[in-house]
Amino acid sequence: MTGDTSSEPTDGGHLEKPPRPGAMTRLRNYFLTGLIIAGPLGITAYLTWSIVQWIDGWIKPFIPAIYNPDTYLPFPVPGVGLIVAFLGLVVIGFLTANIAGRTLLSYGELLLGRMPVVRNLYSGLKQIFETVLAERSNSFKKAAIIQYPRPGLWAIVFIATDARGEVAHKLGHAGADVTAVFLPTTPNPTSGFLLYVPRSEVIELDMTVEEAAKLVISAGLVSPDYDKLVQLQAEPNAPEARERAKAGG
Rank of each mutant, 00 (worst) to 15 (best):
P239N: 06
Y122L: 06
V216C: 07
V91R: 12
P21V: 04
G22F: 07
A241F: 05
G57E: 08
L73V: 05
P21C: 03
I159H: 03
L194Q: 11
L87A: 11
G165H: 12
N29L: 14
N237W: 13
R119H: 10
P236L: 02
T48S: 06
N237F: 12
R20A: 12
L205N: 00
A144L: 06
P21D: 01
P224L: 03
E235T: 08
V52F: 08
L27M: 08
T190R: 11
T103V: 09
G57A: 10
E130D: 15
A176I: 03
E204Y: 13
P224T: 00
I59H: 03
I128N: 09
A219V: 01
P18N: 07
M115E: 13
G108L: 15
Q231L: 15
S50I: 15
L205F: 01
D227F: 13
F75Y: 13
V230E: 10
L171A: 02
I37P: 02
R119E: 05
T25Q: 12
G3F: 07
P61M: 11
D227R: 15
D227K: 14
T185P: 05
D11K: 15
Q147R: 04
L104G: 08
D206V: 05
A134N: 14
A245I: 11
Y148G: 04
V118E: 05
Y67R: 00
R20W: 11
R199I: 15
A219I: 02
S218N: 02
D70W: 05
L221R: 06
P187V: 05
N237H: 10
D206A: 09
G113Q: 00
I63E: 04
G81Y: 03
S7V: 12
I146N: 06
S200I: 09
P198I: 13
T161W: 15
I66E: 06
D177C: 05
H14P: 02
S191N: 11
N29E: 14
I63M: 02
L82M: 07
